[in-house]
């Protein structure tokens, strides 16, 4: 049996949160690149036109301008699609933002392959690897719209450069709206049994599919712990090692390329601290046009494939 979730849009939630932040903090300025309807940054632009700047699709310039604003004690939020806010202007992010450690928040929507029909150029499957490679950057990938609000607010309250990864389609809600205490760098335990056989560490939409996989596996007698690794940098190594010690096997789940993302980060922590069998559910190539559901199925990112990875990990224990 598969758990059913209601869904909500992380990008719309982001746009609404940004407006609230704009009311609370006069220093917040927003920069967009001609995608402001899609990122919902236009909500901020409508209410605060004097603090909203569109640059057209000129992402290299946007990152440099954001750096100049941050150096002038503004709190810039850059919003665009994930491919255009990470891959495209990477050197500008590196030299103008990361190296001087400026207070720029890059919030990108349309991450991963669930962006769908636009095809591989629009599928951001390298962004986590790139952004996690920048010293001093904090990298957040909220699991749902509830967590998105917390992540955006936590970023606004924390000085320094951030990358936050959101989605195009509405995604499953895995948190109760009230009482969720989000902390940067502190992994969230989503599901835990008495004697878990394995831990699934997931990020972003991978969390809901991992919870679904865990439910299905429970009916077969396999007990899975599920951890939401919403912060990729700085990653919660303590939570990874605790899971490795207590359950003896790990499966990572991410809608990202298999190199450089969550799986690689977890492997690094395990290798240093407590090696155990590790299976990675991730993309191993560029995808193609299709619906989100079709792509997740074809590229083996569904709960069914997470279940297979769990079994593979258990077999290696």
């Amino acid at each position: 049996m598969v758990t059913a979730f209601t869904t909500a849009s992380t990008r719309q939630t982001f746009g609404e949160t940004l407006v609230e932040l704009g009311r609370e903090n006069q220093d917040i300025v927003v920069l967009g690149g001609d995608l402001n309807k899609s990122t919902f940054a236009n909500l901020f632009g409508r209410e605060f036109p004097e603090r909203f700047f569109d640059f057209g699709p000129a992402e290299q310039n946007i990152m440099g301008v954001a750096a100049g604003l941050a150096a002038s004690r503004k709190s810039p939020f850059v919003t665009t699609f994930a491919v255009f806010g990470s891959c495209r202007p990477f050197d500008q992010i590196r030299v103008s933002i990361a190296q001087p450690h400026l207070n720029v928040k890059i919030v990108c929507t349309h991450a991963g392959i669930i962006t769908g029909e636009d095809g591989m150029s629009a599928h951001s499957i390298e962004d986590l690897a790139l952004m996690c490679s920048l010293p001093g950057f904090t990298v957040l990938a909220p699991a749902d719209a509830v967590e998105t609000v917390r992540a955006i607010r936590a970023a606004a309250e924390t000085p320094g450069p951030f990358y936050i990864r959101l989605y195009r389609p509405a995604t499953p809600i895995v948190h109760q709206d009230n009482g969720y205490d989000f902390k940067i760098g502190k992994a969230e335990l989503m599901r835990r049994g008495k004697n878990d056989d394995v831990t699934i560490i997931a990020v972003g939409v991978g969390v809901s599919s991992s919870l679904q996989a865990a439910s299905a596996l429970a009916e077969e007698g396999t007990s899975c712990r599920v951890v939401n690794m919403h912060t990729l940098r700085p990653v919660d190594e303590g939570a990874i090692l605790e899971a490795a010690k207590e359950t003896g096997a790990i499966v990572t789940v991410e809608e990202h390329y298999i190199h450089g993302g969550l799986g690689s980060i977890v492997a690094q922590a395990l290798g240093k601290g407590h090696p155990v069998p590790l299976e990675m559910v991730a993309l191993d190539r560029y995808a193609e046009s299709g619906t989100a559901e079709e792509l997740l199925e074809k590229y083996h990112l569904t709960p069914e494939y997470i279940g297979k990875a769990v079994k593979a990990a258990l077999a290696r224990k």
Binding site: V29, Q60, M63, G64, A66, A67, G68, R73, R94, S96
Partner: peptide
Amino acid sequence: HTGTPGVEMNSGSLGQGLSFAVGVALAANV
């Protein structure tokens, strides 16, 4: 780089300073 007193921004990768300057000029207006 900004570790030197009086230096406003990091450079060395060409083409980035004018964008930074645009950001500083926009901040003056805001």
